[in-house]
């Protein structure tokens, strides 16, 4: 996550490519998709967690235990997905950083 690494902005550092690049390298591409996933995850989660509120009619008899299982199931899936996204992000970030360090050696 270079975007989130503390950057004081004024000192030295690898020069960023100027101008837009249409086709990103593999690593930055992967990173961007991971960010997409991180953005989408809470949207999906909200949808799933608010489903009970929005869709279940008041008079339908429901099982509290199944609801309990559903809620915690969604919860656990969200946590797992979130942790995986973060892990891949950190990995991609590390590779990214490494890659930019020895750009010459790559490809």
């Amino acid at each position: 996550m270079p975007e989130s690494k503390p950057n004081l902005g004024l000192d030295t550092g690898p020069k960023a490519p100027t101008g837009p690049t249409l086709f990103l390298q593999r690593q930055p591409y992967r990173r961007r998709r991971l960010i997409d996933a991180a953005r989408v995850l809470p949207v999906f989660g909200s949808f799933l967690l608010l489903v009970p509120a929005l869709l279940i009619p008041q008079d339908v008899e429901g099982s509290t235990s199944s609801m309990w299982l559903f809620l915690f199931g969604v919860w656990i899936v969200m946590i797992l997905s979130g942790s995986m996204i973060v892990r891949y992000m950190v990995d991609a970030d590390d590779r990214d950083r490494k890659g930019s360090e020895d750009q010459e050696a790559q490809d």
Partner: peptide
């Protein structure tokens, strides 16, 4: 109120799972 107590934890959960949207910026 049954399962309603979960909402007190679901809100923060969604905010944290969606950290890229808001928390990241707030902390920065």
């Amino acid at each position: 109120s049954g399962l309603e107590y979960v909402t007190i934890y679901l809100g923060p959960t969604l905010v944290f799972i969606g950290w890229w949207w808001l928390l990241r910026k707030l902390v920065r």
